[in-house]
Design a protein around this nucleic acid. Structure first.
Lengths: 343, 343
DNA sequence: GGGCCGATTGACAGCGCTACCAAACGTAGC
DNA sequence: GCTACGTTTGGTAGCGCTGTCAATCGGCCC
C-alpha cells in the first residue's frame, strides 16, 4: 500500500513540461542552457513556466547535479567597516548572476576558518572567496582538494591557492610612511590595533621605510590586539605620547584610529599637522570631511569584492581569467593632516 | 545497461549506519533527534560518524524533508553601518544553532524586496527576517502565505505579519528634539538623508515635538533622498544655514550626518554647542570620541539582530515566544554637543 | 534517393536523505 | 504466562531534478 506523503502544492518541472508539450528533461535544459533548444520549444517552455509561476527546486537540482550555485565567502569580521565595502562589491557583482552568496564570519581565527571551510566543502560550492593568505596547513589542503575555483582577497602573496585579488599592504604602508619622511618628519609613531596578518605587513612596511631612513625606533611603535575603534585611537595616542613625547607624526593602520587620534589631539589642543601630522589607512569617506582633512591610503575595497566575484564566476563557467593574480594597488591621498601647517 | 554516474567519494549516511551496525534511518534520526535513540546506539552512531568524518548532504536532506535550515534576512543596505550591527547580532546569535543565515540586499526598494521574498518562498526557508513594516501588498500576502515564522525588525507597527523587534523612531526623535527644546533651543534644524520610512517617522517625531512647543517652521527642515555620508552632513548644514541662518541647533537623523555637521562647524569656526548644538541618531561608537562629544539617541541594533534570530529560532522549533512584539527602546545620550557651553 | 553528420529531444535511473507506517522490543499489570 | 501499552528500530518509497546515453530529426552532399 502506498504511504501518503504530504504533497506540496508547488509546481514541478514535470508540470511545466506537460503544459509545454515537451519532455521534462527538455524543460530542464531550458533553465540550464536555453541555447540548446530549438526556438519553438524554447518559447513554449518559457511561456509554460511563466504561466505556472514555476520556480526551480534548488535542493533537488543540487542533489541531482552534485553541485550548487553557491559562492562561499569567508570574511574575518563584520565589525570592521573595511569588509563591508568588500561584501558590498561581492553582492553587487553577483547580482543578476545565477549564483548565491553565502558568507560566514571567521572572527579572525584561522581555526574557525578551517572549520567553516570544512562545512563549505560538504556543500560543494560553485566557488569560494577567502580572506588573506594565512591559512592553516589543513585549510590549504582542503582548498586544494576542492574542485571549485577559489579567490583569495585582500592581499597578495607568492603562492595563490588558485586566484588572488589584493594589493601590497607592505608597499602601501611604506608609501605612507615615506610621505611623512619626505615632509620632514623624523619621529613617526605607529599605531596599530587588532594586528591581523595584513596589519602585521603594514607594520613591516613602516619598519622598512623607517629603517631605510635611519629613523627606526622601537619606542615609536604601539600596537594592541584589541579590536579597532575610534575611541581606541585616542587612548593609543595618549599611551604613545607618554612613551615618546617627541613624536611629530603618526601612521595609523586604519582610519578609525586616525580619527580617534585627531580627536585626542583636538582634546589636548595639539595642532594637527603643526605639532603632529596624521596618516590613516583605507581612505574611508569621512577622512575628506575631517578638520583638518586626513591623509590616508586609498584601498579599492569595493572593487576587490567585485573583481573577486567576477573572476570567480568566469572561472566557474570555464572561462578562466588570463591573470590569476590581480593587483588592485593603492593610492596615497595627501590632505591637510600631513601638509598644511596652518593650525 | 546501467549508466555510469560520477560516484562522489564522499561518505553517505548509509556508510555510517553500516559501520555503526544500525539501519540508515536510525542513523538519520541520530542527527535530527538524538534523544530518540537508545544510549547504546546513539554512541555507536556518533563514533561511526566521527570516524568516517561524515557530513550530511544538506541538499538531499532538504529535498527529502521538504524544508531547509536556512533563515532568510532581507536588509535594505550594506552601506549604512546601522545594518552592520544588526547583521552582526544576527550572525552571532545564530552561531551554534543548526540554522544558516542567507541575507540579501533590497536596496531600499520594496519591489526588489518583493522579488527577493518570492525567491525565498521557493526555497522554503525555516524562518525569515525582514526590515521594517512598509512592504508591498503582494509582499505581505506572500509572507502571510509562507508557513514559517517571520520577524520584522528595526521598527514597530500596529499589524505585525508575525513577530516584531524594534523601537519607535517617532518617540526617539521626539525625545531628542525635546531635549534640545529643554536646553532652550528654539530654531532647531532637521537634517535628513535617504528618507526611508524609518527616517520619515523620525521627521514626524521632530515635527510633533516642534509643533507641541510652537516652534515648528518648515524652513528648518532640510531633507534629501541622497544616500547618507559624513560629507553630506557638511553640505546639508551649509544649505540649511543659507536658508535659515538663525538656527541654534540641529537634529541629524544619523550620526554620520552629525559628524559632518560638526566638521562643517569646525571649518567655519562655528562654536559647538555655543552657537549650534548637535544631536545625532544611533549613537555610533565615534560619537563619544568627537570633540566636543556628540549627543545622540542610542538604539540597540546589535541586540535587535540577536533578539530577532533568537525569537525566530524559538518559534521555528515550536516554542513561540510569549510576546510576539518586542520593543527594545532607545536611550537619549546627552553629551557636550548639547550641553557644555564651553567653546 | 541514400547516407552521413550535427542538432535536438527523450528514456531511464538515481543523487542522499527522510516521511510514513509497521514491526520488534521492552515493561508493567493482572 | 498473557495482554496492553509505550518505546525503539527498520523497510519502503519517493522528494524534484539532472547525468548519461540513445534515438530521432533535418539538412546536405553525392
Amino acid at each position: 500500500m502506498p504511504r501518503q506523503r504530504k504533497k506540496l502544492g508547488s509546481i514541478r518541472l514535470t508540470e511545466v513540461a506537460k503544459l509545454a508539450g515537451v519532455s521534462p528533461i527538455t524543460a530542464s535544459r531550458f533553465f540550464r542552457n536555453p541555447e540548446a533548444l530549438s526556438p519553438a520549444k524554447r518559447e513554449r517552455v518559457e511561456n509554460a513556466a511563466r504561466e505556472l509561476g514555476y520556480v526551480p527546486n534548488l535542493a533537488a537540482r543540487a542533489l541531482a547535479s552534485q553541485r550548487t550555485e553557491v559562492v562561499g565567502v569567508l570574511i574575518p569580521s563584520l565589525t570592521n567597516n573595511v569588509f563591508n565595502d568588500v561584501l558590498r562589491g561581492i553582492y553587487d557583482a553577483s547580482e543578476g548572476s545565477r549564483y548565491t552568496i553565502q558568507f560566514v564570519n571567521t572572527r579572525y581565527s584561522i581555526f574557525q576558518e578551517e572549520k567553516l571551510l570544512r562545512l563549505f566543502q560538504a556543500q560543494k560550492p560553485a566557488g569560494l572567496i577567502v580572506t588573506g593568505i594565512n591559512q592553516t596547513e589543513a585549510s590549504l589542503n582542503l582548498m586544494k582538494g576542492m574542485d571549485c575555483p577559489i579567490v583569495q582577497i585582500m592581499e597578495l602573496g607568492p603562492d595563490p591557492v588558485d586566484m588572488m585579488v589584493g594589493f601590497s599592504h607592505y608597499d602601501a604602508a611604506f608609501a605612507a610612511v615615506s610621505h611623512l619622511i619626505e615632509q620632514g618628519h623624523k619621529r613617526i609613531g605607529f599605531i596599530g590595533a587588532r594586528m591581523d596578518p595584513r596589519v602585521q605587513r603594514r607594520l613591516e612596511g613602516y619598519r622598512a621605510a623607517m629603517k631605510a631612513a635611519n629613523l627606526f625606533d622601537e619606542n615609536l611603535v604601539l600596537t594592541t590586539s584589541t579590536p579597532t575603534a575610534v575611541t581606541l585611537g585616542g587612548t593609543l595616542l595618549a599611551d604613545l605620547l607618554s612613551r615618546a613625547p617627541d613624536i611629530d607624526s603618526v601612521f595609523c593602520i586604519n582610519d578609525d584610529l586616525a580619527l580617534g587620534v585627531l580627536f585626542e589631539c583636538q582634546r589636548r589642543g595639539i595642532p594637527v599637522p603643526g605639532r603632529i601630522a596624521i596618516v590613516g589607512f583605507n581612505d574611508m569617506e569621512f577622512m575628506a570631511s575631517a578638520v583638518p582633512s586626513l591623509s590616508s591610503v586609498r584601498t579599492n575595497r569595493y572593487e576587490m569584492g567585485r573583481e573577486a566575484v567576477t573572476m570567480l564566476i568566469e572561472a566557474i563557467e570555464g572561462r578562466r581569467p588570463e591573470k590569476a593574480v590581480v593587483d588592485l594597488g593603492f593610492e596615497l591621498i595627501i590632505r591637510q593632516s600631513t601638509t598644511a601647517r596652518y593650525s
